[in-house]
């Protein structure tokens, strides 16, 4: 009886463990055709190519070219290649040449590439 019980349980426990340990890097990728109305939150890394109206909050946010966000973006590090209409707040902001930004930008460090179109109020804070 005891033998049967242990042999049945073991594989189940193993698969659960593998799942948990391998997903320690929480990298989320949201593809082009995704549309979100609401909020998107993560503690790690978001690669976003879709359309969002609402708020995004994460440690690192990568707004890919073709993405569109209307609302509030909060992160430690943000890279913007797409379009943003709203408030951006981050320690490090990298604005790429394909970016289009309207709104308010609160930052500690900012890097802007040639070609980007920005109509915004910038607020520096140390």
């Amino acid at each position: 009886m005891a033998l049967f019980g242990s042999s049945e349980k073991k594989p189940e426990v193993k698969t659960e463990f593998m799942f948990d340990t391998e997903s320690t890097i929480n990298q989320s990728t949201l593809a082009k055709d995704i549309k979100i109305n609401g909020s998107l939150e993560s503690t790690d890394y978001i690669d976003f190519s879709g359309h969002l109206t609402g708020t995004i909050k994460s440690s690192t946010i990568n707004l890919k070219s073709g993405s569109y966000v209307k609302g509030t973006i909060t992160a430690d590090t943000i890279t913007i290649e797409g379009e943003v209409d709203g408030d951006i707040q981050a320690k490090d902001i990298y604005i790429k040449s394909t970016a289009k930004i309207k709104g308010n930008i609160r930052y500690q460090n900012i890097d802007i590439q040639n070609g980007s179109i920005i109509n915004a109020d910038l607020f520096y804070s140390s």
Partner: peptide, 21 residues
């Protein structure tokens, strides 16, 4: 019209793109 900002620069104020606005 075309803007390039190096990491570390401090800008406090308003940015307006000439073409778009």
């Amino acid at each position: 019209t075309s803007l390039q900002v190096s990491y570390g620069a401090r800008i406090q104020g308003t940015l307006r793109h000439r073409g778009s606005v």
